[in-house]
Amino acid sequence: MVMQINTERRCKRCKGLMVTDSATGERFCTTCGFVISEQVEDSGPERHFSKDERDDKSRSGIPTSLAIHDMGLATVIGTVNKDATGKPLSAHMKHDMTRLRTWDSRSQMHEQTDRNLRQAFTHLDKLKDKLALSDAVVEKAAYIYRKALSKSLVRGRSIEGVLAAAVYAACRDAETPRTLSDVSDAINVKRKDLTKNYRLLVIELDLRMPVVNSISCMSKIASKVGLSEKVKRGALAILKEANDMRITAGKDPMGMAATALYISCMKYNEDVSQREIAHAAGVTEVTIRNRYKDLKKSLNL
């Protein structure tokens, strides 16, 4: 710690010598310790920041997010009972700070909407890990749920059911291959309730959902079964040809992707059964056999 002697002024109490702490900016008496100024203007040279230091946002806090009940804008009172200089607080001040923390926590959960959002986004954070969702999908799901809450669509329905419908809608919008069974099993909601809530959100919020592409579903099934890259490329060629001939219109994309993979496995002599592919795709073996007949007839396989 560097001390600078201030010869211009003396202490008003004891006429002692005044010094300036260059680290904290305090000016105090060396004899009695009387502080006359807690902050002084830095008289040193200006610091020149590099481009990396100017672009560094590490001290700006967490970014705002729709997936946080208060969007990350609420104030937080720290739990460390020390002041700005690092000195411990007195017993009376510790008691006051504890009361302030309690009321700060209660004020954030005062409204019913805040409690609803906090519970919903806690489940959403778990779904993000279980379904391996991207941040864009999570933000979209939180946006859809907030719109549903603002229109009182959650009233009379379970929070988990409406949240599951919002997550499925966000996956459809971002073309992320997640089925109804995947979402319902991850959040422990009946598939019937999930489909009912999903239809409600689409109608009431006027959502425009894109058609699921069977090509995007293929990689998910192939990774679950553990198929080779050669089989994937063969199935991709079959699906592209089927899409060009509009054979996939009105068909389950998971069923079409599973059938294309099964045909490719037969072509390249991969020892994979219909049951394994059907289980990975979440469809029945009958669906694969029916789609196989359609593709074989239309594509002359």
Rank of each mutant, 00 (worst) to 15 (best):
I215K: 08
S273P: 11
Q274T: 04
S273W: 07
A249M: 10
G255A: 12
L200R: 11
L205N: 11
L239S: 04
T259S: 10
M256K: 14
D185C: 04
L236D: 01
K220H: 07
E204G: 10
A258D: 02
I263K: 10
A260L: 06
R275F: 02
V202R: 13
C265G: 03
K232I: 13
M266C: 07
V231W: 01
A242L: 13
K190R: 03
S219I: 15
A249W: 01
Q274S: 11
S214C: 15
K251H: 14
Y262P: 07
K190V: 01
L207K: 05
P210W: 11
M254W: 14
L227R: 05
E204H: 15
D206Q: 10
E241Y: 00
M218P: 01
M266H: 11
I238Q: 01
G255Y: 00
K190F: 00
I203H: 13
G255C: 04
T259H: 06
R275Q: 13
V211K: 05
I238H: 02
D271I: 12
I215Q: 03
V225S: 01
L205V: 07
M256S: 10
D185I: 05
R191W: 03
T248I: 09
K190H: 04
N188Y: 08
D252R: 10
M209R: 07
K251N: 07
V272K: 13
I247A: 11
N188C: 06
L205D: 10
E204M: 15
Q274Y: 07
V225I: 02
E229M: 06
V231T: 12
K192G: 00
A235T: 00
Y198W: 11
I263N: 02
L194Q: 04
K230G: 06
V225R: 00
L207W: 02
L205F: 07
E270W: 08
R246L: 08
N213P: 03
L261A: 05
T248S: 12
K240Q: 12
L207C: 02
R275C: 02
G226E: 06
S216L: 11
I263W: 03
K230T: 11
L200E: 10
I247V: 15
S219N: 12
M254T: 12
N188I: 08
D185V: 08
L236S: 03
S216R: 13
I187D: 01
M218I: 04
E241A: 03
K240F: 00
M209T: 12
N197H: 12
L200F: 09
K192D: 03
K240I: 03
A235N: 02
A235P: 01
N188R: 14
D271S: 13
D193K: 15
